[in-house]
């Protein structure tokens, strides 16, 4: 007879264990305690407006369905933590999804993050992140030129408000660069840059 419960008879727990012990996971994350009640889905904005289903993600993880890692649907989560805050057993689909996305990235699925590369570059150079140019241009397009004016006049406005400089002193951005080189972040950005370049080239050829 087919075993219908999620956990009885489960032999492989590689995926659930790797999620539970991931640094991104809350220490007491209740991945294995999920009872499929669906509270997460009931409060989830992505589940309301797209094919994403929080409960289904939790289920696939419990079933050790590794195909969830490369399923594009995981990129619809808003990281709003509604599921996380309402779960009666302390599970967190929000955190699970963040960890699944990191696994996807580790497997070379970079197209979802490459467009945010400039945020990391700006943080390395100035100590403060910024909106990547291609998205910034879309913002101006839909919000209007007034938005561009705010950005052009930002230094003057900040001065009028009696606020300090937007960016960090050079010594500090240098320190940040050194730290991020040693944490492996620089390496991560380089991989993304290489991916971006190779994509550009293949597009040109195409």
């Amino acid at each position: 007879m087919e075993i219908k419960t999620l956990k009885i008879g489960k032999k492989n727990n590689k995926l659930t264990e790797s999620i539970i012990h991931d640094l991104r996971a809350s220490e007491d994350i209740g991945v294995n305690k999920c009872i499929q009640c669906g509270m997460c889905t009931s409060v989830c904005p992505a589940s309301r407006h797209s094919d994403y289903d929080s409960r289904e993600i939790a289920k696939r993880v419990l079933e050790e369905d590794e195909s969830v890692i490369c399923d594009d649907i995981i990129w619809n989560c808003f990281s709003c933590y509604s599921c996380h805050s309402i779960c009666p057993v302390g599970n967190s689909v929000a955190e699970i999804v963040q960890i699944l996305r990191q696994k996807a990235i580790a497997q070379g699925k970079l197209e979802q993050v490459v467009t945010f590369l400039a945020f990391g570059e700006s943080l390395m150079e100035l100590g403060i992140g910024s909106i990547p140019l291609e998205y910034f241009n879309i913002l101006i397009e839909i919000i209007g030129d007034e938005y561009l004016d705010i950005k052009i006049n930002l230094d003057d406005i900040r001065e009028e408000l009696g606020l300090g400089k937007l960016t960090l002193p050079d010594d500090d951005t240098r320190d940040i660069k050194i730290i991020l080189e040693k944490t492996g972040f620089t390496n991560r950005l380089e991989k993304l840059r290489a991916y971006k370049e190779s994509n550009k080239n293949s597009k040109h050829k195409g």
Binding site: D22, L23, R24, S79, Q98, R101, Q102, I105, Q112, V113, F116, L117, F119, G120, L123, G127, I128, G129, G164, K165, L168, P169, D172, I176, L180, T183, G184, F185, R188, L192
Partner: peptide, 20 residues
Amino acid sequence: ERQSCCTGLGYYFDLFDQFS
């Protein structure tokens, strides 16, 4: 003035890892 950005947006863009 030395305080840096928390990385939060980058963290939730899935660009920043928890360790960094």
